[in-house]
Amino acid sequence: MNDDELPKVPTFRRGYRFQFEPAQGCHVLLYPEGMIKLNESAALILEQVDGQQSVGQLTDALAERFPEAPGLRQDVMEFLEVARGRHWIELR
């Protein structure tokens, strides 16, 4: 994902639902007949996907929250790229 995409707004693909599952103690992504358990950093990023914030805004928000984390911007961009590649999210 490159800087041209910073103004784009990520949304979940229709049919993909992100939620916390108390019994599993983690966030999951639910989709037709399937479920992916998310690790903490994936959950933190996907939590920001609200159909409002752009890639740039969401990255800024995370960078502000975790000022100590090195290479955070790049990690977020890479993760969003993977999520898009797997068709979990779409960029508008």
Partner: peptide
Amino acid sequence: ALGAAQLG
């Protein structure tokens, strides 16, 4: 309540 998440 036991943790079921997918329902068919």
